[in-house]
Nucleic acid binder design. Sequence first.
DNA 1: AACAATCTTGACAAAAAAACTTAGGTATGT
DNA 2: ACATACCTAAGTTTTTTTGTCAAGATTGTT
Lengths: 137, 137
Amino acid sequence: MRVSTRARYGVNAVYELAKNYDGDTVAIKTISERQDIPVQYLEQLIVKLRKAGIVNSMRGAKGGYKLAKHPKNISAWDVIVCLEGDFAPVHCKQYVDSGCEREETCAGKVIWEEVNQSVRKTVENMNFQDLLDRLEE
Amino acid sequence: MRVSTRARYGVNAVYELAKNYDGDTVAIKTISERQDIPVQYLEQLIVKLRKAGIVNSMRGAKGGYKLAKHPKNISAWDVIVCLEGDFAPVHCKQYVDSGCEREETCAGKVIWEEVNQSVRKTVENMNFQDLLDRLEE
DNA sequence: AACAATCTTGACAAAAAAACTTAGGTATGT
DNA sequence: ACATACCTAAGTTTTTTTGTCAAGATTGTT
């Protein structure tokens, strides 16, 4: 099990914007440099963040990005789900599609559902204001 | 983030053996059929389970596999880690290797470490006896 | 109005990982 | 001896992930 770099990049990018929440817009190139993310790859990710209402964009010279909401109101879950689709480690669909007809007696199902829930709970309870606070000691 | 089929297959295979803990050895072909896993792929997985001391093998005619311990003493964690290497969604190594020098101020680090811990806790607390009980209502 | 910085989009390519197959070999109960 | 079933290594195919390329649209600044 692993988290894709998409999600890692995304979290870092949003964190970078959170740091500048009270300031000017941040150009994509700036985020790219500070967080060490390939520019054009980051562009793809940030499109999703915009469509999800996490980020606002300003075009033209002096343009850039800003968080659409207060860091307190953006959770790690929001960002991750937005970039990874559903963050659940295992989708039941996989069992169904692969012909596992004994859904009710499937050991995996029990395990993965609990894992899904525990991951979700953990990540939902983590907002970017908290992260800022924790990293600014 | 997703769990590989390796881990899913592995859990199902061990569960199959857990069901037969008090009976005879189970041939790999039988496991394969009952859990719908490609035989020779399963062989690769079960080698690891054997080396990890989770499973015992008996060669020759009438051979097969048996759990090496009581189902109560085998956790989902044991099986998963054995097949996936470390189950942590994100290794800090990835940050270090990719040149992220500000380990101390990395938003991701905080998040992923909590995710790792919560996943680990969940899966460690789940043993195959419990699974048997829960699925035999 | 022209320019340059910046966002926007879609298609493509390279790389890595995962899943599965092939082809043999080895041990052992009957 | 022989059939059964485990054992191993190497290779192939497929899928997923990651990253690149190229061209376009928008808008503040001069």
